[in-house]
Simulated scan of single mutants.
Amino acid sequence: MSLLIQVQDAIADRLRQGLGRMVREVAADLDETGLCGLDLAQGSFQSRLTPAAGSPGLNPQALARLPALWTVAGGISACQPSASLRQRYKAQARFTVIVGDRLQADHGYAGAGVWQLVYAVRRLLSAQDFGLAVSPLMPEQVRPLGQAQRDGQPWSLVACDFSCHWLDEALDNGHWPSPQGEADPDQVFARFGGRLEGPAAEWRSTRLDYSLDGKPGVKAQDVVKQPPSA
């Protein structure tokens, strides 16, 4: 499974556990709510959550679900060669949590309010790696997306951005995937009939030749062999 999806699922799972009754639902993708995905191009949010880029209103379907959260995997924003590891690339990924709640909480409202919810989301997610091979989540921008009236009160959507990175390993030049088991991510190539490369030959022995003072000719030799199977 892609690390993008694993991190997104882990974000949603932690929020479901941590937020308790603050929200009605935490969706791992906007499609789960029957709304639609967000367009994250160049950091702008345009979707049916907000009718238009310049409009402060909210879609009635989204408004009716509040208080709620939606998590979005924003893709890989940059990828650079690792400074220390050959054939590995540092992939920078972005994730966004859309927070929706009443703009202001008062004594007559049982919920947390949008800004308390923003605090709770950032508190639960910042510096977490979820036990995955990724850097801890870095909190980034917090951006209001829009407002609308419901029951005579203003309700608001706010985007909370996070980022993290991991190392992607490339194949050696000219080589093909060689999955080593069902848990290997490269197993996807075998499952769908892609070209594979046989596993590396089993190591049996290594020979070490020694020379003196850089002069040609072998003066001593060691052979390290694989011990016999029990």
Rank of each mutant, 00 (worst) to 15 (best):
G37C: 12
V26H: 03
R195V: 12
A27Q: 01
F130P: 00
F95S: 02
P185F: 02
S178E: 07
W115D: 15
E140I: 04
P228W: 00
L125R: 13
V118R: 14
D184N: 02
L167G: 05
Q6A: 15
D168Y: 10
K225F: 00
A220K: 11
A27G: 00
M22S: 09
G113Y: 08
A148Q: 09
G111L: 06
V118Q: 12
L132A: 09
C79G: 08
G75F: 07
K219R: 15
P51K: 11
S211C: 15
S126C: 14
D101N: 13
D39Y: 09
P81I: 10
G214Y: 04
Q46C: 10
L4I: 05
Q104V: 13
T33D: 09
V26Y: 09
E182T: 00
Q92T: 10
G54L: 12
L30Q: 08
Y109G: 02
Q187P: 00
F189W: 14
Q61K: 12
A27L: 02
E197Y: 04
L125N: 08
R24F: 10
D161W: 05
K90S: 04
G113W: 04
G54T: 11
G75K: 07
L69S: 02
D222K: 15
A41V: 01
Q6D: 15
K225W: 00
C160D: 02
D39K: 09
P51L: 12
G194N: 11
A64H: 03
L40T: 11
A120R: 12
T33K: 14
G217P: 01
I5W: 07
E140Q: 15
Q104G: 05
A52V: 02
A62H: 03
D9K: 14
W115C: 04
G54A: 14
S2R: 11
S82Q: 01
A170F: 04
P139C: 08
V23E: 06
Q87M: 06
H107D: 11
Q153K: 11
A12Y: 02
N59Y: 05
G181K: 08
P81Y: 06
V99Q: 03
G34W: 11
E169Q: 15
Y210P: 06
R204P: 00
I11C: 09
T33Q: 14
P185K: 08
P216L: 14
A41Q: 05
G174A: 04
S47E: 12
A230I: 06
R14F: 01
Q8S: 13
A200T: 06
G113R: 13
R150Y: 06
L167D: 07
K219M: 11
L212T: 05
R123M: 02
G75D: 05
L171N: 04
L124E: 13
Q147C: 13
L124Y: 05
A183R: 11
Q221H: 03
M138V: 09
Q187R: 08
C36T: 07
H107K: 01
L15G: 05
R123L: 04
P227N: 12
K225P: 00
G193D: 09
Q187Y: 09
D9G: 11
D29H: 13
R16Q: 13
G20R: 07
E140K: 14
Q187G: 07
W115H: 13
R207C: 09
L4C: 03
A41K: 07
M1V: 08
T96K: 03
V118A: 15
V158P: 06
G108T: 03
A83T: 09
P56R: 07
Q104H: 13
R207V: 15
A112D: 02
Q8P: 00
A110P: 03
L212R: 12
S156L: 15
